[in-house]
């Protein structure tokens, strides 16, 4: 057995590099979240379409994406996109995969948020002769948002924690960097532990932030403008 202790010198050497790589992680998370929100809203609306075929396709798409591994979806895009003539960088591939994967989860959040709004609100909007666009924007979504924001936040945190999977397609985010540092120095303890701690701290802070925000939401909902 090798005598093994925490090596502070090595830890201090790795930490700045890891924090630098954390920017890549955060970049992938932010872009992935934006895409996921767009896809999620789109799917949620498709699932309320008046055509049964559209509703069913949207449902099964969601079900399919949610029940297959993110890692395989990442590989799929990474290997198949070039076949289709698209040469995507690891970052773009990663953002697309994260956005698609979490978009499926978010669509369910959005759908149940929208369904949670009192039926009378739709009827009132019809009575006021509001267009569907204004009904969603001014009446439904502001009320649905309160229920949707915490769950959305939690999925974004989940996405953040899953970005290390992008190391599988050589994106140089935190975990990939830690792995390289580890194998070069034959010491995995410090880099992997630090990565874990960075994730732990950031996600605990983010969760606390969501809980705080949840407490402060106005009960009446928001005005979108």
């Amino acid at each position: 057995m090798i005598e093994f202790q925490w090596d502070w010198d090595f830890a201090w050497e790795v930490l700045p590099l890891l924090l630098d790589a954390c920017k890549i992680t955060l970049q992938a998370t932010v872009l992935g979240s934006l895409l996921a929100i767009v896809i999620g809203l789109l799917l949620a609306l498709l699932r309320r379409s008046k055509w049964k075929a559209v509703r069913y396709s949207a449902y099964w798409w969601m079900e399919f994406v949610r029940s297959t591994p993110l890692l395989v979806q990442i590989y799929f895009l990474y290997y198949v996109a070039p076949e289709w003539g698209l040469n995507l960088s690891p970052m773009v591939t990663g953002v697309l995969a994260l956005g698609m994967h979490y978009g499926a989860y978010l669509s369910e959040v959005f759908r149940s948020g929208i369904d949670g709004v009192d039926k009378g609100q739709w009827e009132a909007s019809i009575a006021l002769n509001l267009s569907p666009y204004h009904t969603y924007r001014d009446v439904i979504l502001p009320q649905a948002l309160r229920a949707m924001i915490p769950a959305t936040g939690n999925y974004i945190i989940a996405m953040f924690k899953e970005t290390p999977q992008l190391s599988a397609i050589t994106l140089l985010e935190m975990l990939q960097l830690a792995k390289i540092m580890g194998s070069e120095n034959f010491r995995y303890l410090e880099p992997f532990t630090l990565v874990g701690l960075i994730y732990l701290v950031l996600s605990l802070i983010a969760s606390a932030g969501i809980r705080q925000a949840e407490r402060r939401f106005p009960k009446e909902g928001f005005t979108l403008s």
């Binding site: 290390p164 995995y188 992997f192 532990t193 990565v195 996600s203």
Partner: peptide, 18 residues
């Protein structure tokens, strides 16, 4: 829950042997 499965997997697989 604060870290992800992949990091935990690496930690157990790469760090524990040390």
């Amino acid at each position: 829950r604060g870290t992800s499965a992949l990091i935990q997997l690496y930690w157990i697989y790469f760090v524990l042997p040390f």
